[in-house]
Design a protein around this nucleic acid. Structure first.
Length: 1067
RNA sequence: GGGGCACUAGCUCAGGUGGUUAGAGCGCACCCCUGAUAAGGGUGAGGUCGCUAGUUCGAGUCUAGCGUGCCCCA
């Protein structure tokens, strides 16, 4: 006996049962047993930061990871799944700042770095509970107990090792670079961080006079959108090849600007008095607009040429302030110009800028313009609308470009190796390789690694405060070699406060107090103040999760490289890049690709309208709430069905509801149907099963479909195309539910014990069990329910869980392509017949004498005939016939088989098509039938065509009730004689009584007593079919008797039918 | 300004290596169904595949240009 299954099901309740079952029986742990015998399938978990609530996008990546991991597990691989947490970085600090109500580096220092670091640890795991809950609820199996954590001491030491290796190879250096700087936060932002904060804003666009030295009343007219950088002006840039005009204004003043822009800036009538090439301007000197300080390190206030000067906007001369622009810095450095940085790191003007001292850069723009205007230096002011970056965590804070001393990894030196690595990776979708990632690598610049912040992996570099000598260390042990007492201060602090975690010894502020001296060398080695970009942390996870190389070398080797990772597209420049780059730099000798072989890149998740999901707009339902409503499987299925790698995924609650109806409920209904009748019949898995060959066509068909589905799903999952696997599963379930079960129902409720019935039960059972396994990676909850009841309950030897079972294997005994093709045709015949009925307004209730199928050949005919009874029932016809005279019903048309004839005839193809179309198709068809070839006359001469070179198209002739499609034609005999009409009427009566039963809310097995009355043909029909009517409606009494005013009185085709129905209570 | 992706039915989306009747689900219309029934099912109408050129015997699919939207980077 199976446990009874109700057709009404609460998937959320099932989820709870299975979650408890997995937990109690430790199924996940069991999947990890036997590691030694199994082939490993290595997965890396991209560590999330748990300092915010998980949202649907996170759910997507987690279920996408899960489906491939469950699949591989069932295929017999050893699939370790270690969780990880990303714990460092600006997001964490900003969250803590918010919590403490402070902002900026100084405020943090005042608050105390020690206390701040501890707060960061608290904050990092603030939502870890929510993350774990979501992860468990959605059914993502991952091992939290062994999770790697990026702030842990062993992890940090691994990162240090990587950095020290790079330092020793000369790949880590300190440079002066223009970075995107967040003044209020006091730190540089990574490219990825900057990219998240672009906003369209209006900035002033000003044109300013730079008086030419040595030319009377003549000025360069230069352009800028950042007036606050003018006090730090060093040079003007021109394009050497461009023409520059000198224009004389009415008052005699002369301005120099690009000739092409004269009209735009000064009007078409402007008086051009001279023209020079940009190269002729190079080297000329000018008066700067401000002169608060003298530049250092080289000449200033000269014209230089630069490749980036464009004529799209402005004047063709660009103001350069190397302290505040990446291009400016590069060009000025190339030309050996000086440097001036009149702006403090907090974004305010220093004291020497007397007019604006203490003012915030962007806020001072207006006053600077006013000042320039008052002195007659300003020529023109406009508003310039463009995209400008703001801090991604504090959206009101603009970023500025700012030259800083910072540490870099010389990625550009090894970029070719990274590119090679990228080429070797299997990206899904493929275009990431040469597209987003490839292009990014083409434009690679050195990795700006350091952050002038607090909560991050400290840069393991110590500098001698007297000699300037620099050392990098790769572990705590290396520090202790240099100074055994290096951590005495930390030990002391720990003794005073036992809650102080050991992990913190490698963090600020404790690590900053670590120092050493060297014999025979003056000065003390002290750590540089910076921490590093947290992307470097997560990029080290392939080895840092093991603490490699300081420990667990074998763990690292066994789990390197990963077979599979998946994250969203924003990780291209994030985790994917950091993984690939660090690995390429650290392990140049290893076989490519590493550290990952297959990478599924997911698109962004949006709401129904394609809008980005945002907490503020509340355009999504909390995943946990949604799962409690529709169940985790529904959410999972909706995501698999709606997600194509690389494309954005629109997700909304209705998609999950649809998933229930389209997939889960269909399977459930079949399952419930099966269990109901198996239990009534006492069928169990132990009952001997008929051999496959002895089963009817219908059974062998569904098993052939199952086998084809198994092959397809395996292939798609091997190719990381989950959405394609979903389609195959949907197609199979539709055929199972809407053809196999619908057509086979009667076989299950037959009362005698026949071979046919045993075959039906065996087949449906086998299909359900394999389907449960096949769908288990996608919908692990419902499939577990099926598996437990169908398999494990009565077979203690079976795997404890569907997730410990083997994924279905292709079964060559089940293959039957001919049968699949035949059923496809049969179903098409039914479709066509139904279309004929619809078009001719012939209800299915009205029986017809015959359906005639036009077939192309005898084999097709024999195949279809095997399903004659099914077709007769579906179409409600008394007979199924095959015509011997196709010409009577259909027109033939011959069309070239383009795939074959294209290469053969080339340019003659259209002529051939026309010749075939113009000829008498039916005659050609007859000729082809007789001679196995035809000859057509083309302008270029006669051509002989064989049957494989043409396609035969059939179309129904207009004078018959017929429909054609997919190469088939079905004709219905629409004549309704008296006998047919009376049978139709009888079926109408049955229908009315059944409807009455339904409105009376009777149980399906309830017996009734019917009294009826009618006149004429209707009465005749009822009399004639009384037995059948009574039988089908379970009427034990059926008599012609007038009962006035019955509630079920009705009419059929205009004839009154009086019906009185009462339930007959039999006990 | 540069790079990437997308544009297919009213809506959401599929459509390896080009092959001539472009598919699915939802929605809609009409219809069916008591033994899977607080379910299920059938049929149909909807598309010049963003636009314009080109390559080709043949283009939703390949090439170029343009347009619109999204993402990334300046």
């Amino acid at each position: 006996m199976f446990d009874p299954v109700s057709p009404q099901v609460s998937f959320p309740e099932l989820d709870a049962t299975q979650l408890a079952f997995w937990e109690n029986t430790r199924i996940f742990e069991k999947t990890l047993e036997g590691a030694e015998e199994k082939q490993p399938f290595i997965f890396y978990e991209g560590p999330p930061t748990a300092n915010g609530m998980p949202h649907p996008g996170h759910v997507l990546t987690r279920v996408m990871k899960d489906v491939f991991l469950r699949y591989r597990t069932m295929c017999g691989y050893y699939v370790p799944r270690r969780a990880g947490w990303d714990t460092h970085g600006l997001p964490v600090e900003v969250e803590v700042e918010k919590e403490l109500g402070i902002s900026g580096r100084e405020a943090i220092q005042q608050y105390g770095v020690e206390a701040f670091s501890r707060k960061c640890i608290d904050s990092v795991f603030k939502y870890i509970g929510e993350w774990q809950k979501m992860t468990e609820r959605i059914g993502f199996w991952v091992d939290f107990d062994s999770a790697y954590v990026t702030f842990h001491k062993s992890y940090v030491e691994s990162v240090w090792w990587a950095l020290s290796e790079m330092f020793n190879k000369g790949l880590l250096y300190q440079g002066y670079k223009v970075v995107w700087w967040w003044p209020q936060g006091g730190t540089a932002l990574s490219a990825g961080e900057v990219g998240q904060g672009y906003r369209t804003i209006d900035d002033p666009s000003v044109m300013i006079r730079f008086p030419v030295v040595g030319e009377e009343r003549t000025s360069f007219l230069a352009w800028t959108t950042t007036p606050w950088t003018l006090p730090s002006n060093i040079a003007l840039a021109v394009s050497a090849k461009t023409d520059y005009a000198t224009v004389e204004l009415e008052d005699g003043e002369r301005l120099v600007l690009a000739a092409a822009l004269v009209g735009k800036v000064l009007g078409e009538e402007a008086n051009v008095v001279a023209t020079r090439k940009g190269s002729e301007l190079v080297g000329m000197s000018y008066e700067p607009p401000f002169r608060y300080a003298e530049p250092e390190g080289g000449p200033a206030w000269q014209v230089i040429d630069a490749d980036f000067v464009s004529l799209d906007s402005g004047s063709g001369l660009v103001h350069l302030a190397p302290a505040f622009g990446e291009d400016d810095f590069r060009v000025c450095k190339e030309k050996g110009m000086g440097f001036l940085q009149l702006m403090k790191p907090d974004g305010t003007f220093p004291d020497e800028v007397t007019d604006f001292a203490g003012r915030f850069c962007k806020d001072a723009d207006r006053d600077i313009i006013r000042n320039l205007s008052a002195r007659g230096v300003l020529f023109k002011e406009e508003v310039y609308r463009h995209d400008y970056p703001f801090c991604w965590r504090a959206m009101d804070d603009p970023l500025i470009q700012y030259a800083r001393r910072s540490w870099f990894i010389r990625t550009t030196q090894e970029i070719d190796r990274v590119k090679e690595n990228n080429q070797a990776v299997h990206w899904e979708p493929e275009h990431i390789k040469s597209g987003r990632m490839g292009q990014f690598l083409e434009g690679n610049v050195d990795w700006a690694l350091s952050r002038e912040r607090f909560w991050g992996t400290p840069l393991p570099i110590w500098k001698n405060d007297e000699t300037g000598a620099v050392e990098a260390v790769g572990s705590v042990a290396e520090i202790l070699e240099r100074n055994p007492d290096a951590f005495a201060h930390f030990e002391k602090a720990k003794a005073a406060d036992p809650t102080l975690q050991d992990h913190l010894m490698v963090h600020k502020p404790w690590i900053d107090a670590v120092s050493w001296t060297k014999d025979g060398e003056p000065g003390v080695y002290r750590r540089v103040p910076e921490v590093i970009d947290c992307w470097f942390d997560s990029g080290c996870m392939p080895f840092a999760q093991w603490g490699f190389p300081h420990q667990n070398a074998e763990g690292f080797e066994r789990n390197f490289p990963a077979d599979f990772i998946t994250e969203a597209v924003d990780q291209t420049r994030g985790w994917f890049y950091s993984l690939m780059t660090i690995s390429s730099l650290m392990f140049p000798e290893r076989a490519l690709p590493h550290p990952f072989k297959n990478c599924v890149v997911l698109g962004l998740m949006t709401d129904e309208k394609g809008k980005k999901l945002s907490k503020r707009d509340k355009n999504y339902t909390d995943p946990l709430v949604l799962m409690d409503r529709v169940g985790a499987d529904a959410v999972r299925w909706a995501l698999y069905a709606g997600t194509v790698p690389g494309q954005s995924t629109r997700f909304f609650d209705d998609a999950a509801t649809d998933a229930v109806r389209e997939f889960l409920l269909k399977i459930w209904n079949v399952y419930s149907f099966f269990v109901t009748y198996a239990n009534i019949d006492g069928w169990t898995a132990a009952v001997p099963r008929p051999a496959l060959a002895d089963r009817p066509d219908m059974d062998r068909w569904v098993l052939a479909e199952l086998d084809a589905t198994v092959r397809a799903v395996r292939q798609e999952l091997d190719d990381y195309k989950s959405h394609m696997a979903v389609r195959r599963l949907l197609g199979f379930v539709d055929g199972l539910s809407n053809w196999y079960v619908r057509r086979s129902r009667a076989r299950f409720w037959a009362s005698e014990d026949t071979d046919d019935k045993r075959a039906a039960f065996s087949t449906l059972y086998e299909v359900l069990v394999d389907l449960a396994k096949l769908a288990a990676p996608f919908v692990p909850f419902m499939t577990e329910t099926l598996f437990q009841n169908l398999v494990h309950k009565d077979d203690p030897a079976a795997p404890k869980s569907v997730h410990l079972a083997s994924f279905p294997e292709p079964d060559s005994a089940r293959i039957d392509e001919e049968l699949r093709k035949t059923v496809e045709r049969v179903r098409n015949v039914v479709t066509l017949g139904q279309r004929v009925r619809n078009e001719n307004k012939l209800k299915v209730r009205q029986p017809l004498a015959e359906a005639i199928v036009v077939v192309a050949d005898d084999q097709e005919r024999r195949g279809i005939d095997r399903f004659a009874s099914a077709i007769r029932e579906e179409l409600n016809v008394r007979a199924l016939g095959f015509t011997q005279e196709p010409h009577k019903y259909v027109e033939f048309e011959l069309v070239p088989n383009f795939r074959v004839l294209g290469p053969k005839l080339g340019k003659q193809v259209p002529a051939c098509k026309k010749a075939l179309a113009d000829a008498d198709g039916s005659a050609l068809y007859a000729e082809m039938e007789a001679k196995e070839k035809i000859v057509v006359q083309l302008p270029s001469g006669p051509v002989e065509l064989t049957p494989s070179e043409v396609e035969v198209r059939l179309s129904a002739r207009d004078d018959f009730a017929a429909a054609s499609g997919s190469g088939q034609v079905v004709v219905l005999d629409t004549r309704v004689d008296d006998s047919l009409r009376r049978e139709g009427l009888a079926r109408e009566v049955i229908n009315r009584i059944q409807r009455a039963r339904k409105t009376m809310d009777l149980a399906y097995e309830a017996r009734i007593e019917v009294r009826w009355n009618a006149d004429g043909e209707l009465a005749e029909a009822i009399e004639e079919h009384a037995k059948r009517i009574a039988g089908e409606t379970l009427a034990t009494g059926f008599s012609r008797e007038s009962v006035p005013g019955s509630a079920h009185d009705t009419e059929i085709d205009g004839s009154a039918l009086s019906l009185s129905i009462v339930e007959k209570l039999t006990r």
